[in-house]
Deep mutational scan, measured.
Amino acid sequence: MFKRLMMVALLVIAPLSAATAADQTNPYKLMDEAAQKTFDRLKNEQPQIRANPDYLRTIVDQELLPYVQVKYAGALVLGQYYKSATPAQREAYFAAFREYLKQAYGQALAMYHGQTYQIAPEQPLGDKTIVPIRVTIIDPNGRPPVRLDFQWRKNSQTGNWQAYDMIAEGVSMITTKQNEWGTLLRTKGIDGLTAQLKSISQQKITLEEKK
């Protein structure tokens, strides 16, 4: 169930391209415009997507990853294993993690069937560096609404905000991946996880038929 919630949630996290980005210092504006741009692209490019579902990787690479804190999220997933990894191991892992996100997020976007969304009203940021933004996803086919909290983090150097995690039903996506990959990290280390991520990233994206 959580895996499905995570995939549905990713439908609204794909941010804007650099040329049309919203105010990078306001995570609420980023979330709002990102959702609108993403849904528009999914709707307008269905012919290309249906002809070649792996085209979704391109959308992810162009529109999402430049505005997601990939390395920060990847380091959180590694936890204690990050500090013990060599620079070469980290570089290989982050490259594999990025390719994994292209496949995983692309597969999530393949679930698009006309969903709509509501974003919580903007709250004062103050001096906060981590801000959760509640998004409610509404399914046109009558499924119950899904309420999610996207975690946005302020870059201490640039002042810009980027998304790095999502919490559904009190469970963090980062925590879920830590639990899912924990045994592999304990037995085969970061190299074993890197190899698995490379394998997963090679899987073809498949479209979910409308139910």
Results as ranks from 00 to 15, higher is better:
M1G: 00
M1Q: 00
F2V: 08
K3G: 01
K3C: 01
R4Y: 15
R4Q: 11
R4I: 15
L5R: 00
M6C: 03
M6K: 02
M7V: 06
V8P: 00
V8Q: 01
A9E: 00
A9Y: 14
L10P: 01
L10N: 00
L11A: 03
L11I: 11
V12F: 15
V12R: 00
V12W: 14
I13Q: 03
I13W: 12
A14Q: 10
P15A: 08
P15Q: 08
P15G: 12
P15E: 08
S17Y: 11
S17I: 07
S17N: 13
A18V: 12
A18G: 13
A19T: 08
A22K: 10
A22E: 12
A22I: 14
D23L: 13
Q24S: 13
Q24G: 13
T25H: 11
N26Q: 08
N26T: 07
N26L: 09
N26K: 07
P27I: 07
Y28I: 07
Y28H: 08
Y28F: 10
K29I: 15
K29S: 14
K29Q: 14
L30A: 08
D32C: 07
D32P: 13
D32W: 05
E33G: 04
E33C: 04
A34W: 13
A35F: 06
A35E: 04
A35G: 10
K37D: 11
K37N: 12
K37S: 07
T38D: 01
F39I: 02
F39M: 02
D40N: 10
L42E: 07
K43Q: 08
K43I: 08
E45Y: 04
E45P: 02
E45S: 14
Q46M: 09
I49G: 06
R50M: 11
R50A: 10
A51G: 10
A51R: 12
A51Y: 13
A51N: 13
A51P: 09
N52H: 12
N52G: 03
D54Y: 11
Y55A: 13
L56V: 14
L56R: 03
R57C: 14
T58C: 12
V60M: 12
V60I: 11
V60N: 03
V60K: 00
D61S: 09
D61N: 08
Q62D: 10
Q62R: 07
Q62E: 15
E63Y: 01
E63R: 02
L64K: 01
L64E: 02
L65W: 10
L65A: 05
P66H: 05
P66C: 05
P66Y: 04
P66Q: 06
P66R: 03
Y67S: 07
Y67D: 10
V68H: 15
Q69E: 01
Q69I: 02
Q69D: 01
V70T: 12
K71A: 03
K71I: 01
Y72P: 00
Y72F: 04
Y72N: 02
A73M: 06
A73G: 15
G74E: 01
G74T: 00
A75Q: 01
L76K: 02
L76D: 01
V77N: 14
V77W: 12
V77A: 08
L78N: 05
L78H: 02
L78Y: 01
Q80V: 11
Q80Y: 10
Q80H: 09
Q80S: 09
Y81A: 15
Y81G: 15
Y82M: 04
Y82G: 01
Y82C: 03
Y82P: 00
Y82F: 08
K83E: 03
K83C: 02
K83V: 07
S84F: 06
S84L: 11
T86I: 06
T86G: 08
A88K: 06
A88G: 11
Q89S: 11
R90I: 03
R90A: 03
E91M: 06
A92K: 09
A92D: 12
Y93M: 04
Y93T: 04
F94E: 05
A95I: 11
A95N: 10
A96D: 12
F97Y: 10
F97N: 15
R98T: 11
E99K: 04
Y100L: 09
Q103C: 15
Y105W: 09
G106Q: 02
G106R: 00
Q107N: 15
Q107M: 13
Q107A: 07
A108Y: 04
L109P: 02
A110I: 15
A110Y: 13
A110V: 15
A110E: 13
A110G: 10
M111W: 09
M111E: 01
Y112L: 04
Y112F: 05
Y112P: 03
H113N: 11
G114K: 05
G114C: 11
G114W: 13
Q115V: 01
T116R: 15
T116S: 12
Y117N: 08
Y117E: 05
Y117I: 09
Y117V: 06
Q118W: 09
Q118L: 12
I119W: 09
I119N: 09
I119F: 09
A120H: 12
A120L: 11
A120V: 13
P121F: 14
P121Y: 15
E122A: 14
E122S: 09
Q123A: 14
Q123H: 10
Q123R: 13
Q123S: 14
P124C: 06
P124N: 08
L125H: 13
G126N: 09
G126L: 11
D127Y: 06
D127F: 03
K128Q: 07
K128T: 07
K128D: 07
T129M: 10
I130E: 00
I130M: 09
I130T: 04
V131G: 04
V131N: 10
V131P: 00
V131C: 12
P132C: 14
I133F: 06
I133S: 07
I133D: 01
I133Q: 06
R134F: 00
R134H: 04
R134I: 00
V135D: 02
V135R: 00
V135L: 04
T136L: 13
T136V: 13
I137A: 03
I138T: 08
I138M: 09
I138A: 12
D139K: 04
P140H: 14
G142M: 10
G142F: 10
G142H: 11
R143H: 08
R143T: 03
R143P: 05
R143D: 01
P145G: 07
P145M: 07
V146A: 10
V146T: 08
R147F: 03
L148A: 08
L148K: 00
D149N: 05
D149H: 08
D149F: 11
F150H: 08
Q151H: 08
Q151P: 07
R153N: 00
R153V: 01
K154L: 12
K154A: 14
K154S: 08
N155I: 01
S156N: 02
S156Y: 03
Q157V: 12
Q157P: 01
Q157Y: 07
Q157D: 02
T158H: 11
T158A: 05
T158M: 07
T158C: 09
N160L: 07
N160W: 04
N160R: 10
W161Y: 15
Q162D: 02
Q162L: 05
A163N: 15
A163T: 12
Y164H: 08
Y164V: 05
M166F: 06
M166V: 07
I167P: 06
A168T: 11
A168S: 05
G170L: 01
G170Y: 04
V171Q: 00
V171G: 00
V171W: 03
V171E: 00
S172E: 00
S172H: 00
I174P: 00
I174W: 03
I174K: 02
T176R: 00
T176A: 03
K177V: 14
K177H: 15
Q178S: 15
Q178E: 12
E180M: 04
W181R: 01
W181V: 12
G182Q: 15
G182K: 10
T183Q: 07
T183N: 11
T183M: 11
L184C: 12
L185M: 10
L185A: 12
R186T: 00
R186Q: 01
T187A: 12
T187P: 02
K188L: 08
K188T: 11
K188N: 12
G189C: 04
G189I: 00
G189D: 11
I190C: 06
I190R: 03
D191V: 06
L193V: 13
L193T: 10
T194Y: 04
T194F: 03
T194P: 09
T194D: 08
A195I: 10
A195G: 11
A195W: 10
A195K: 12
A195E: 11
Q196E: 15
Q196G: 04
L197K: 01
S199N: 12
S199R: 11
S199I: 15
S201V: 12
S201E: 14
Q202K: 11
Q202H: 13
Q202S: 13
Q203E: 09
Q203V: 14
Q203S: 09
I205M: 15
I205N: 15
I205C: 15
I205T: 14
I205E: 13
I205K: 03
I205F: 15
T206R: 12
T206Q: 08
T206P: 14
L207G: 15
L207Q: 07
E208N: 15
E208S: 14
E208L: 13
E209H: 10
E209M: 10
K210D: 08
K210G: 13
K211H: 13
K211T: 11
K211S: 09
K211G: 12
